[in-house]
């Protein structure tokens, strides 16, 4: 039998406690234990970036991390960014600039860019392309995503998020 652990962690500010198998990865934990299905799984080997979440503020591929390794940590997923009536400026910019089509890679793109724009508030186009070079999108050709990130950066510089 596989061994089990009880873990506690915070996701989008909310405390969770679960007993899980050691081998369960963080992506599957979020999706199938917590039913936070906004985080998507595209390759399960750390290349596509769809499963990117923030762990203690740092972007990580949740398919490459065991859920037990996230014990005691604070996770941020796309569900915590904004809601349909109240989009985060980056989400609003994605919509404005057609930065998504099927929407499957989108949560990973958003979480990657949230971190990037926090650390690089005034990037140029080449820096944005570099920032998302570990996130695959098969639909958009990336231009809409790049345009959205640049627009969001400008909007966030003008009106920084509170809190």
């Amino acid at each position: 039998m596989t061994d089990r652990w009880r873990i506690r962690l915070k996701v989008n500010g909310k405390e969770y406690e679960r007993e899980i198998e050691t081998r369960l990865n963080l992506a599957d934990f979020l999706r199938h234990e917590l039913l936070l299905t906004g985080t998507h799984v595209g390759c399960e080997h750390g290349v596509c970036g769809a499963c990117t979440v923030l762990v203690d503020g740092q972007s990580l591929r949740s398919c490459l991390m065991l859920a037990v390794q996230a014990a005691g940590k604070e996770i941020a997923t796309v569900e915590g960014l904004g809601d349909p009536e109240n989009l985060h400026p980056l989400q609003a910019a994605f919509r404005e600039h057609h930065g998504l089509q099927c929407g499957y890679c989108t949560p990973g793109m958003l979480m990657t860019l949230v971190e990037f724009l926090r650390d690089h508030p005034d990037p140029d186009e080449a820096e944005v392309r570099e920032a998302i070079s570990g996130n695959l999108c098969r639909c958009t050709g990336y231009q809409g995503i790049v345009d959205a990130a640049l627009a969001a950066a400008a909007s966030l510089r003008e009106n920084p998020l509170k809190g």
Partner: peptide, 8 residues
């Protein structure tokens, strides 16, 4: 877009 952008 709104649903897709918010993990819904």
């Amino acid at each position: 877009d709104p649903a897709l952008l918010t993990g819904r």
